[in-house]
Design a protein around this nucleic acid. Sequence first.
DNA 1: TTATCTTACGAGAACCGTAATGATG
DNA 2: CATCATTACGGTTCTCGTAAGATAA
Lengths: 297, 297
Amino acid sequence: MDPHLLRTFVAVVRHGSFSAAARQLGYTQSAVSQHIAALETDLGTTLLHRRPVGPTKAGDRLLEHAAPLLLRLDAARADVLRVAGTPPGRLELAMTPLAATPRVAEALAGARRSAPGLQVGVRVEGRQAVVTGVVAGEYTLGLVEGVAAPSDPLRLSEAGNLTHVAVAEEPLAVLLPDDHPLARRAGLRLGDLVDARWIDAPDVAAPLPDLRAAAQSDAPRPSLRYDGTDVTALVTLVAAGHGLAIAPRRVTAGVPGVRAVPLTLPRLVHRTEALHGHDPGPAAAALAAALAFQARP
Amino acid sequence: MDPHLLRTFVAVVRHGSFSAAARQLGYTQSAVSQHIAALETDLGTTLLHRRPVGPTKAGDRLLEHAAPLLLRLDAARADVLRVAGTPPGRLELAMTPLAATPRVAEALAGARRSAPGLQVGVRVEGRQAVVTGVVAGEYTLGLVEGVAAPSDPLRLSEAGNLTHVAVAEEPLAVLLPDDHPLARRAGLRLGDLVDARWIDAPDVAAPLPDLRAAAQSDAPRPSLRYDGTDVTALVTLVAAGHGLAIAPRRVTAGVPGVRAVPLTLPRLVHRTEALHGHDPGPAAAALAAALAFQARP
DNA sequence: TTATCTTACGAGAACCGTAATGATG
DNA sequence: CATCATTACGGTTCTCGTAAGATAA
């Protein structure tokens, strides 16, 4: 099970075609065919059915393992190179949209002041992309956020051996249009809203699956999905009555037509964490330290 | 970064010798030397210093990744073979010592009744060995236990994409010798026992590191380490005054000279979970279902 | 010297591309 | 028949073992 074979396997599945995978990988169709044949012989099973090309049951299982495996392989290489290579005067910072707070900007400014020559790159992406990028060593530091029970760490998949540092915990609020019947309440329970329509905006609000897990029900069902990374767009959608969302209250600041009502049950917070690999270099370490907050017991 | 190279790398580090690793792997010393050289050239760093042989800093980082990587590779193969190969009439059950309860034995008996020809193998091991074995497909079903907050899942490292099924939650008790000043209390808090001497018996009682994590202090410090898997031995050690331990109260049943006082704070339970890969076959699935309990909300 | 790692070199295997063959819609 | 996967074949590269060389205890 050579990683190369696995890589072509996932490429074939993704493209649904041997030839397309070959093009992407810079191989001939023949080579791809031989790769798949090698895998299938090795495992003694057929992994793909052809015409149309798609994974068999066994192939599905392999696929589920292959991607994380390749990711960890990259992570290993990146991790070794990190301690070996000259610690670069660069800081590549990636974060999810809601993690971009003034506090982060200030801490970053502080880091630049104390290391004048520092090259800094900042990037805003979805949560998964941030985690993957940090694991693969593409970014030196990542800021991700999500919902969790108070002082619980975020449950990040594939965040293998990254270091977590708690950066912030904020109360969550239900975002409703101004004229919503519940908009004047002092607090809301998720149970009050089982029949509501929700906007699923995984990158820019509390992801609905996380809420369902926390609420131990399948209550919040999406009526609209928003895939961008622009917070204002989401808030505008809420104001227009497309559905509700749950996010830290601050996102509604300055936007008319929307109210943020504190979420009282389940007891969840919006938590931000900094992620980095082993020894991310002095700049990233200093930044992470500056961002770290003391979790209240 | 061929897996073969990684495998020889970890073997070399483990043995502290190229030649020993070569013997174990069925290679020549030369081949091992070439493997390491290949890795070092590929990564552009020295991974080992020689005479004596040991990992460099970069090598340490690689080592940390290599073992899980190889494990997951085996897991992938096992997982594919599991769905491919004929579902065998075998059930290989592995469990940690405290998971071996009458309830498990009964459920196993039930599984054998409903599948008369079933070949069953049972094995008791340490927690890590059980998890590793299930991941690698060596066992069809694993039962592991540990301490956790009520209705929280166990935090298992390297349990990647295994299915967890809650099997039992039991209250925890502090095990003390009969003549201990606190032995007559109705309940004990961990804070009452900061100065006590503890027995660290990771396989057969609540592992001290888990307790420290839960208590958010470094309080329970070990005075004696017990590495066996025999519960009675631990209880006997407690009775003899070698130190305290935390375990489900039932382990003291019938043993004189020991008392089990309920642990009231932190609020922790002894939790048992069944682990299996995707589609472990009908026998294991039935057994897991029979063991599953309804977690109280 | 002795145990041990490294290097040189050659036989065999593995790998990928070209090109011919086969299968499917 | 056109598209796409498979198979046959050959040159190149890799890999490992043998054997000789280097190096530290």
